[in-house]
Amino acid sequence: MKKLIGIIFFLLSGVFLLPVAATVFFSFYSEGGFTADGYKDLLFDCFVFYPMFWNSVLYASAITLAQLPVVILCAFGFTWAKFRGKGILFIFYIILMMMPLQVTILPNYIGLRDMGLVNTPWGIILPMIFSPFGAVVMHQYMKNTDSSVIEAARLETSSIFRVILVSVIPQLRVCIFAVALFVFAECWNMVEQPMLFLTDKNLKTMSVFISEAGSYTGAVLFPSAVIFLIPVLLLYLFFSDSLEKGLTLGELS
């Protein structure tokens, strides 16, 4: 029985891996057989690829790095501040987290246009810094951390930043890694924002590149898909442990 479950699981995990494996396979495969020509075409002949890849790296890293302090402070506030309407405010964040992008895309666009941020990297980066997912996850995690450490740190210093730095962040390590990985993967996966908010080709991202890669010369389609997933794959390999331990969401309010 146990063996049977084992075999079924082995096969099932194979099914889940199959799309990625097939993408890698096809990146080396063309009519004649196996070749790395696609990669050669992409890396040496397709110069649009580099700025777009770099843009993806830039946007995703900038958003992730800028979002972490905002999220940590916000979760800290939600956990420790006492004021009326805190519960409702948190529910508001949860609902916001669940809204599809398209709901506010129009006024977002108009707002960014009024600020002169359309067709600049800021139009992509700024709104994403405040996406509420990280705050919600981190607050859930922070609720269960040891508060006596914070009380102790408060006796030592009156600066709230020192308290957070010394007593909160060490406890949150796993959760911070998990949120960072998740946010980075989300930003890496952005399609709508670069498509709608950017018109300049030099500012667009790899997602856009791949969706148009069919029109470039050479078999660059599958190689670009593989290269696009390598950075997140590496991050996942490094931080998957945190991802599994740092994301806990259950009772909401």
Partner: peptide
């Protein structure tokens, strides 16, 4: 095998839509 099930979470859609 767990990593195999969680991996799709981080794989960008653009990469996988091709296959």
């Amino acid at each position: 095998t767990r990593a195999a099930f969680v991996l799709p979470l981080v794989i960008p859609t653009a990469s996988i839509a091709l296959i």
